[in-house]
């Protein structure tokens, strides 16, 4: 059921007629109304870092917005290793800004004020849910056990080796199972929710305004943001490039299958860069088989246009 969801979303958006690209100016209101019907992506902030928690959200932003991010939690399936990690997904400030600007996401605010009554209700709901789950699991466990016994009996019958006595014993066990079986409570399976659960006690309020965003809009983050938006608009996938001394790693396709081609370095037009820094980053780029891009947004004129210069090590023989 999880796979159908994105397709649905696509459908609604196309009907609304607002493409991702051309919504900067006019069709805002209509597009907004259209989008509000599809669930927004929830961004949760921990110490100013934007995190995504729900698997559906993570998938949607990857497929529709090309937001890759980095998984930073322990993997549910095998928590004690670092090779594959699990939720939450940490995304870049620029990715969060862009999602908010397009009205695709909302920042989740939690506040602790809650009335006594709703809390009591929530606890009751949780308890009854647990009880219900236990009862149902008892039934399932019994069926499971019976099925196993049945299988053994069938196997023995097929073998034609068993005598009347053993088959009788099997039947007796089956009937006693029916009567006296209880699943010990400690064997009940419970879920440890990753994202905030439905029965959670803090009612959340989604803020839709990008103005709530805590990121300070200084020149550097503005530069980074414009470069991000431009590269993303050209269809590249971007991730953080701190380990390569740059701002973004630029991938030609989904990073799951493709290597990055570029290391993007965001510089405003007038920013001066010492020559040794340029040399260092170019050298590093060629060592990891990537091209270094110096990316500077144009001062004015065409909004969003960025000038790219590539640095490459050229061997003269």
């Amino acid at each position: 059921m999880d796979c159908e969801r994105p397709a649905e979303d696509h459908g609604t958006r196309q009907n609304g007629g607002a493409g991702e690209g051309g919504e900067a100016a006019g069709a805002e209101s209509e597009g907004d109304r259209e989008r509000s019907r599809e669930p927004r992506v929830n961004i949760s902030l921990v110490g100013g870092t934007p995190l995504l928690w729900r698997a559906g959200d993570i998938r949607r932003v990857r497929e529709e917005d090309g937001v890759v991010g980095a998984l930073v939690g322990s993997l549910a399936r095998q928590p004690r290793q670092n090779v594959r990690l699990g939720r939450p997904l940490e995304i870049l400030q620029e990715e969060a800004s862009l999602l908010l600007q397009r009205g695709r996401a909302a920042v989740q605010h939690t506040h602790n004020q809650e009335d006594e009554e709703s809390h009591v209700k929530a606890v009751e709901a949780y308890q009854s849910r647990l009880e219900h789950s236990y009862e149902e699991q008892c039934v399932l466990a019994l069926e499971d056990k019976k099925a196993v016994l049945q299988r053994v009996m069938n196997a023995k019958q097929n073998d034609h080796t068993c005598d009347e006595g053993t088959e009788q014993a099997m039947r007796e066990r089956l009937s006693s199972l029916q009567k006296g079986f209880t699943l010990p409570r400690s064997a009940m399976a419970v879920q440890l929710c990753t994202a905030r659960a439905g029965f959670g006690h803090c009612p959340e309020e989604a803020a839709f305004l990008a103005a709530d965003w805590p990121m300070p809009r200084d020149e550097r983050s503005e530069t980074r943001f414009r470069v991000y938006r431009d590269l993303r608009g050209r269809g590249f996938y971007l991730t953080a490039a701190g380990k390569f001394g740059g701002d973004y790693l630029v991938y030609p396709g989904d990073p799951l299958r493709f290597h990055a081609h570029f290391i993007a370095l965001c510089l405003s037009m007038d920013e001066q860069l010492p020559l040794c820094d340029v040399l260092a980053v170019a050298r590093l780029g060629s060592n990891v088989k990537k091209t270094v891009l110096l990316c500077s947004p144009r001062d004015s004129g065409v909004e969003g246009e960025v000038v790219y210069s590539s640095l490459q090590w050229s061997g003269m023989v």
Partner: peptide, 17 residues
């Protein structure tokens, strides 16, 4: 495979918690 891994929820026996 990636989405299956990411979407997986933690399920434990009550007695092990």
């Amino acid at each position: 495979e990636h989405w299956t891994l990411v979407a997986e929820e933690r399920v434990e026996r009550l007695g092990n918690l």
